[in-house]
């Protein structure tokens, strides 16, 4: 089985990045919270600074920077593109899990010290579904962060692969087209009666329970994973050109 070498290499590399990311996160937390304590000691309320977003961006970037590298390393060593892609994704998802765990701990730490610092970080989970300091709540928060960042891996890889495969002209077309589509869709939602309601209803459904949001994110991950595979399937794998 040729899955392991890439998985091992990628995970090792990813975990180093996760380490750096978490240290930065922790430093940020300390800076933000204690900075506020020193400067505005009278503040009464909570700082809404969200590290879950940073986590998602982190996974997204992992997805972008790793996928081509692993396909190259794989093909160089006689590993099929399917196996390389699977190994890369698995390692990135595992790294996202580790990072999500770390971020959840940092967030929990800030909540736990809330009384002394009078400031706390708010997780995705808390933002949408309200603060829940119980173990179960923290677990759900962790799970949501993980699913959120894990799905970002596939979206990041999609961007990287798309720009890899497309010619310069098509890159422009796709980039501008995506923006245009978004604006058109928004306008359409405003104009077409009932569509806006459906969109809002969908968002309400997402907000009803964490599991709904999770299902939606897993769906996004699956859809993008399929796109990723389609882009990789026949891709010419050659060296990075300077």
């Amino acid at each position: 089985m040729n899955f392991l070498p890439i998985f091992k290499y990628r995970l090792k590399d990813d975990l180093k990045a996760v380490g750096v990311f978490l240290i930065v996160t922790l430093l940020c937390m300390v800076l933000v919270i204690y900075g506020i304590m020193i400067m505005v000691s009278e503040i009464n309320g909570r700082v809404i600074s969200n590290f879950s977003i940073a986590l998602t961006v982190f996974s997204f970037v992992l997805g972008i920077v790793t996928v081509r590298e692993d396909l190259r390393l794989g093909i160089q060593n006689g590993v099929s593109r399917g196996t390389s892609l699977a190994a890369c994704f698995t390692a990135n998802v595992v790294a996202s899990l580790a990072a999500a765990l770390g971020v959840t701990l940092v967030e929990w730490l800030s909540v736990a010290t809330q009384n002394t610092t009078n400031a706390a970080l708010v997780s995705f989970y808390a933002m949408i579904y309200g603060e829940d300091a119980s173990l179960a709540g923290q677990l759900r928060s962790f799970l949501l962060s993980f699913v959120w960042s894990g799905s970002a891996v596939f979206v990041g890889s999609f961007l990287s692969l798309m720009y890899w495969r497309l010619s310069k002209l098509w890159r422009w077309v796709v980039s501008l087209g995506m923006g245009a589509a978004l604006i058109l869709l928004l306008n359409a939602a405003m104009i077409v009666g009932g569509l806006m309601d459906k969109v809002l209803a969908f968002f309400r459904w997402l907000g009803e329970a964490p599991v709904n949001l999770c299902i939606c994110l897993v769906g996004v991950a699956v859809v993008f994973a399929v796109f990723d595979w389609l882009l990789t399937r026949k891709a010419p794998i050659t060296a990075a050109t300077a």
């Binding site: 590298e69 190259r72 390393l73 093909i75 160089q76 006689g78 590993v79 099929s80 050659t238 060296a239």
Partner: peptide, 18 residues
């Protein structure tokens, strides 16, 4: 994988990570 693993190529280009 099985078929490709039987071949090693010294390519003109370098495919190792930077």
């Amino acid at each position: 994988d099985r078929a490709l693993g039987k071949v090693y190529m010294m390519a003109e280009q370098n495919l190792f990570p930077d």
